[in-house]
Nucleic acid binder design. Structure first.
Ligand SMILES: [Mn+2]
Ligand SMILES: [Mn+2]
Ligand SMILES: [Zn+2]
Ligand SMILES: [Zn+2]
Lengths: 127, 127
DNA sequence: AACAATAATAAGAATTATTACTGTTATTAT
DNA sequence: ATAATAACAGTAATAATTCTTATTATTGTT
């Protein structure tokens, strides 16, 4: 429905997010691309990330230390957040949480998707 | 290590959070208590909520529309967030997610606790 | 190639939740 | 009661994100 034009920077932003598994913030993506696109604006990164999210091409993993973190992997999977260094790591753990089951058992609304986030300390922070 | 003094306002803040199941924001608690304590400061609400969280007496349920939401119920339970009106509702759903199991299967760090948040539309917003 | 229509952008201002600072007040120990 | 200091109100500061506007880039058409 959208009359969207092509944009090199928009592509780059999605590409940067797809190139990493660190679930970066808008700021991180901006810092990565700034050398390649010296006239890139932080607002453009924010705006395009919002677009991608609306389109369902990326997801938000939540906010860590006040900054929203993003993920280009839209398949359902859990995340681990290190409460010390802020690292966000995929959990390939097979967690037996069935959204359909939850949805049918939940009477107060309709469920679209679910997030599972575990908190703790990553290996580097444990030493 | 805790040279903590008694404070009526601090008590009131925890009491306000305990009195509701809506998982309110700092702002909401402030608005609730302001008539009773006309010289209450929003900063005091923030500061004491941080204290309570550090002490493990309350938990953060995450941020909704840019505002952090709190819960005085520290027992492990899942939450439902309405993406339209921002309501946060307890899910008494028995979700088969075992943190211990996840922790043992996760090799990248040690897990302290886990959050499960489902997103969708609440009944009022479905109409 | 030049043009028109308009989506996308840069730059920076504005907004907003949260935190830090500072002088004053309330609470506790002596 | 006095002294020590935690807690506070009020306000300023911070920082992430969004909004505004003038300009530029993209796409389709002559
Ligand atoms: Mn992920
Ligand atoms: Mn709850
Ligand atoms: Zn870490
Ligand atoms: Zn709702």
């Amino acid at each position: 429905m959208k009359n969207r034009k092509h944009s090199r920077k928009r592509e780059a932003i999605l590409g940067a997010l797809r190139s990493t598994k660190t679930h970066p913030s808008a700021e991180w993506i901006y810092a990565q691309l700034k050398p390649l696109y010296p006239d890139l604006s932080l607002g453009t990164v924010y705006r395009n990330l919002s677009l991608f999210r609306e389109e369902g091409r990326i997801i938000s993993v939540g906010t860590v230390n006040g900054q929203e973190r993003f993920d280009a992997d839209t398949s359902p999977h859990a995340h681990f957040v290190c409460d010390r260094c802020g690292a966000v790591i995929d959990m390939d753990v097979e967690f037996a949480f069935d959204p359909c089951k939850a949805a049918s058992a939940f009477s107060e609304g309709s469920i679209d998707y679910c997030e599972v986030v575990c908190h703790g300390r990553c290996h580097k922070c444990i030493e």
